[in-house]
Design a protein around this nucleic acid. Structure first.
Length: 501
RNA sequence: GGGCCUGUAGCUCAGGUGGUAGAGCAGCGGCCUUUUAAGCCGUUGGUCGAAGGUUCGAAUCCUUCCAGGCUCACCA
């Protein structure tokens, strides 16, 4: 042992117990155990199980122990909940009691026995056979609960956020709410998948490793492919590959994927994030708006039981129809500034007058976007479709059919945050090339997040791309909203953390 | 990156105008055949985030560093 670590003593005692068990002929790590019921089933089917005197078998971790000499109580936790077990020597034998006395909280055990109710009315399994399934040699954080008039008071909750994120398995074991959040996350993703499949969408997988990254504004992660001695990027979006597939005739396509953005980490950002993107040929952004509204309001009802939810201290109603507001009108509404009337120099001055920091090389669109982010976004609590964005900040979006300088794009803002971003997709290859060139110009001027010209993508487009609508939806943000989680770290099992010192 | 705050036993936390540490739970040894924050008796356990400094003496004061939280900025 190179170094004595904290808790070494407890660990040594437990290792000694493992040896003792082996000496007694008990395998502390056997291979299997047949489970007949989950804890929850036993509680639900109690009447039947107790009158038939059926022997049930369950497995799980022992989470509390109360010994009483030749008897003892404890709670066993499995994937569906907890149930009390009661052991007594005249039922489980001397060996049973012996094993029971050597148990530590956190050990996996298997129980065979009949179901009954204690005199305090708790459904309990009386142990006929106790099998140790796996000995734990580190102590679990102990959480004690007291139930009084239906109110559960938690003592010594495992609450250190750093440790909870770093050792999520402990967090999951000990804090039941955490599991709930992730179960909901899974339900949300599964609902969306079914929803799109029912509409005839095909789920696909496109490259994570890309020679040229694109489809969003973000700094990428870089890596290297040894065999071809080439630089590769981890994707920041799926967009350009999914569009290639639509070009290839897959007219309704979606992907749920991890994207990677080499940017700051905070309550709303994690370097790897889960993104849903879907594209449908022959549709425009109006259609996508309807679809997104229907999908998100229904997934909300599915997992929350209602479309009226609470997020932090906000009451949010996702019942359709959602408000529609033109992007420029939203700025007018909350700042009084009619950005359309001003040219680049005017806007620079307005930004300065409003204490909005901008870079010299920025174009109109970037400045307008910044004004929006600073002054408008936080005010939008209930779902709103913001429509018709400046062309400068939307290089993959088709120009507006009626008005110059803007594009057919919308974002969904809920609770002051962007949840979805969608376009009538640009399918004119000549225009697309121009937009890329403009982005390259911005990059040369110092915009590190400007998009990169993708010749291979342009080639694909030049073979003909149907008109289409498409959208990207941040799944982590959606899960945050629907589980009332204030931080993105609460909806990602293993959020990015600095390595421990 | 800025500001504020935190880091003491396995967990949750006290202590702190400087005199090398405490509680509850967990653990360990007992007693106990319906307990449930079980109880009762006894008891172990900590280089007080790290390093350096001031001092006769530092968990406490100072500096730097590390990790984290909140917040602002940045961030499609």
């Amino acid at each position: 042992m190179a170094k004595l670590e904290a808790g070494e003593e407890i660990r040594n005692i437990r290792i000694k117990k493992v040896e003792e068990l082996r000496e007694k002929g008990i395998n502390p790590y056997p291979y299997k155990f047949d489970v007949s019921h989950f804890s929850e089933d036993i509680i639900k089917e109690f009447e039947k199980l107790s009158s038939s005197e059926e022997v049930v078998s369950i497995a799980g971790r022992i989470m509390s122990v109360r010994g009483h000499g030749k008897t003892g109580f404890g709670h066993v936790m499995d994937s569906k909940g907890k149930i009390q077990v009661y052991i007594r020597e005249d039922q489980a034998g001397k060996e049973g009691i012996e094993i029971f006395k050597m148990l530590d909280i956190g050990d996996f055990i298997g129980i065979k026995g009949k179901v009954f109710k204690t005199k305090t009315g708790e459904i309990t399994i009386v142990v006929n056979e106790l099998t140790l399934l796996a000995k734990a040699i580190r102590p679990l954080p102990i959480v004690k609960e007291k139930e009084e008039d239906g109110e559960v008071t938690v003592y010594d909750a495992f609450s250190d956020k750093e440790q909870r994120y770093r050792q999520r398995y402990l967090d999951l074991l000990v804090n039941p709410d955490v599991r709930e959040v992730f179960v909901t996350r899974s339900k949300i993703i599964s609902f969306i998948r079914r929803y799109l499949e029912n509409l005839g969408y095909l789920e696909v997988e496109t490259p994570v490793l890309q020679p040229i990254y694109g489809g969003a504004f973000a700094r990428p992660f870089m890596t290297h492919l040894n065999v071809l001695n080439m630089k590769l990027y981890l994707r920041i979006a799926d967009e350009l590959y999914l569009k290639r597939l639509v070009i290839g005739g897959i007219e309704k396509v979606f992907e749920i994927s991890k994207d990677f953005r080499n940017e700051g980490m905070d309550r709303k950002h994690n370097p790897e994030l889960t993104m849903l993107e879907f594209y449908e040929a022959y549709k425009d952004y109006n259609y996508i708006m309807e679809l997104v509204e229907d999908m998100l309001s229904n997934v909300t009802r599915e997992v929350c039981g209602t479309m009226k939810i609470k997020y932090k201290n906000m009451d949010i109603d996702l019942t359709p129809p959602w408000e529609k507001l033109k992007y420029y009108d939203s700025i007018k509404k909350f700042t009084g500034i009619d950005v359309e009337k001003y040219d680049l120099n005017d806007l620079k001055k307005i930004a300065k007058d409003n204490d909005i920091e901008i870079e010299d090389f920025w174009d109109r669109g970037k400045i307008i976007e910044k004004i929006f982010d600073e002054k408008v976004e936080d005010n939008l609590i209930n779902p709103v479709f913001l429509t018709d964005y400046p062309i400068d900040i939307s290089p993959l979006t088709k120009i507006h059919r009626e008005k110059e300088g803007i594009v057919e794009r919308f974002e969904v803002i809920i609770a002051g945050g962007e949840l979805a971003n969608a376009f009538s997709e640009l399918n004119d290859p000549i225009d697309q090339r121009q937009r890329f060139l403009k982005q390259m110009e911005m990059r040369d001027k110092g915009d590190e997040e400007a998009q990169v010209l993708d010749e291979d993508f342009l080639t694909a487009m030049e073979y003909g791309m149907p008109p289409m609508g498409g959208v990207g939806i941040g799944i982590d943000r959606l899960v945050m909203l629907l589980t009332n989680s204030p931080s993105i770290r609460d909806v990602i099992f293993f959020p990015a953390m600095r390595p421990k010192a």
